[in-house]
């Protein structure tokens, strides 16, 4: 059996990967996908700790995170649709009207 620490390490890696994706990707769809990746990393962490503690409340929390991730993805895609309709563009370098 794989020890739970491996899963926790994997989840931390995915979280950092998602964070890097949010920072360096230029396509707004890819940025949205990166935030979803971070939320799924959290799911892995919850299930891993759940396995360690032999408890079920961590798995219940995973359901909440899944629901919220779906809601955020729906809103994010809706906003991307609205932005694309107004600008015909999905690149963050050219989509900058609000500035310091």
């Amino acid at each position: 059996m794989v020890p739970y620490e491996y899963y926790v390490a994997l989840s931390g890696l995915l979280l950092v990967l998602g964070l890097i994706g949010v920072i360096i990707r230029k396509n707004i769809i890819a940025i949205l996908l990166s935030t979803e990746l971070m939320l799924n990393a959290v799911n892995i962490a919850f299930v891993a700790f759940d396995m360690k503690l032999a408890d079920v409340s961590g798995q219940v929390f995973v359901f909440f995170i899944l629901t919220i991730a779906a809601a955020e993805a729906a809103i994010g895609l809706g906003l991307i649709m609205a932005i694309y309709r107004l600008r015909k563009d999905v690149d963050v370098n050219t989509l900058t009207e609000l500035k310091l």
Binding site: V8, M38, V42, A45, I68
Partner: peptide, 19 residues
Amino acid sequence: IIGGTGTAIISYAIAILYG
């Protein structure tokens, strides 16, 4: 995007505290 990142960070913090 930034709020979603914050959500992920808060839930990871909750996961660590739970563990």
